[in-house]
Design a protein around this nucleic acid. Structure first.
Lengths: 180, 180
DNA sequence: AATATATGAATGAACG
DNA sequence: CGTTCATTCATATATT
């Protein structure tokens, strides 16, 4: 018993801590995500349409405007980063590929993926390779951490509107229920 | 608790039905929303830049694309993530173990330590793992910060050098032929 | 409040 | 591939 969710913020139910959301809150979340997804699609489409005609407008280049690695996180576009960081778009694509379950990308596949992703920002094959390595390793470790105990928390949140599908997020060693 | 209750997607609490999510699920959602939010921000920015010059391009109107009232301001903030914090007792024990010099606790030891610490409060293996990782890293950093009484004169290395760093050995891709 | 600092957690890259 | 390191992000707490 006892789902060991981290301290605080939860609600005690049957002796364990879980997150509790009302249907209403879930609905808000779903709607929010849906809205973002739609807007993103539209904007991306729009951009594509625009750049079909001209890549340069008013002397400015926009081709990689939204792929600028410097404007990724929350807006603080300060110092150049020492290590590669996937742009949100790249992350999306990577997660999608990962979720397709087609195991480990072959070298050839990595080349393709890299080519695809490079449209959305600076990236190298090594980056892609590392990303998959890490993603897999952490996903697996996470799984191993929950197996020793019984099955747990596999309640599917997404029913259809959530784009997310990853069976498990990479939270290594999380979810230890051995507190009884 | 309750994998079963959660699996159903709903649980009766106080006479009403609510959605129950694990921290993990919350994290997944949070991340997903954040990604969308960031992408949207970037795209909107791009759009703004474009429309600074013209409101209509290719016969399409985009002016009110992002003025949708449904967009919740700061939507990617949904819920603050709470984090584990060691109780004084746990901290004491952790520090003791750390001072014993046993560098890396290793997975097995972490299990033991976690078991031990769970007698003194909520904790998971991940927490322990992270704690040691951080403790070691910061201890090292602090040490490195105090020793260097030497040449700090070369303080300003300027931004140029940031672009290029140490790609070190790239054997991950080149030498590895068993990538699949 | 606004800013500064401590610290739990996430993650790209490196290692064996 | 599994583990580990180094750096960064995010949040809690302290200080002004």
């Amino acid at each position: 018993v006892a789902a060991d969710e981290r301290a605080g913020g939860g609600e005690e139910v049957l002796g364990g801590y879980v997150k509790v959301m009302t249907d209403e809150q879930m609905e808000v979340l779903r709607k929010q995500i849906s809205i973002y997804a739609t807007i993103c699609e539209q904007l991306v489409d729009m951009h594509r349409t625009l750049t079909e005609h001209q890549d340069t407008i008013a002397g400015m280049r926009f081709s990689n405007l939204y792929s600028d690695p410097l404007i990724i996180p929350g807006g603080h576009k300060i110092t150049a980063r020492q290590r590669w960081q996937p742009t949100p778009m790249q992350l999306q694509i990577l997660e999608n590929i990962f979720d397709q379950g087609n195991g480990t990308p072959s070298k050839q596949k990595i080349k393709e993926i890299t080519a695809e992703l490079s449209h959305h920002g600076q990236i190298s094959e090594t980056n892609v390779y590392n990303w998959f390595q890490n993603r897999r390793a952490r996903s697996k470790r996470k799984q191993a951490a929950s197996l020793p105990n019984n099955a747990e928390s596999e309640a599917e949140v997404d029913e259809e509107s959530l784009t997310d599908k990853k069976p498990k997020s990479d939270r290594s060693l999380q979810d230890n229920k051995a507190m009884s």
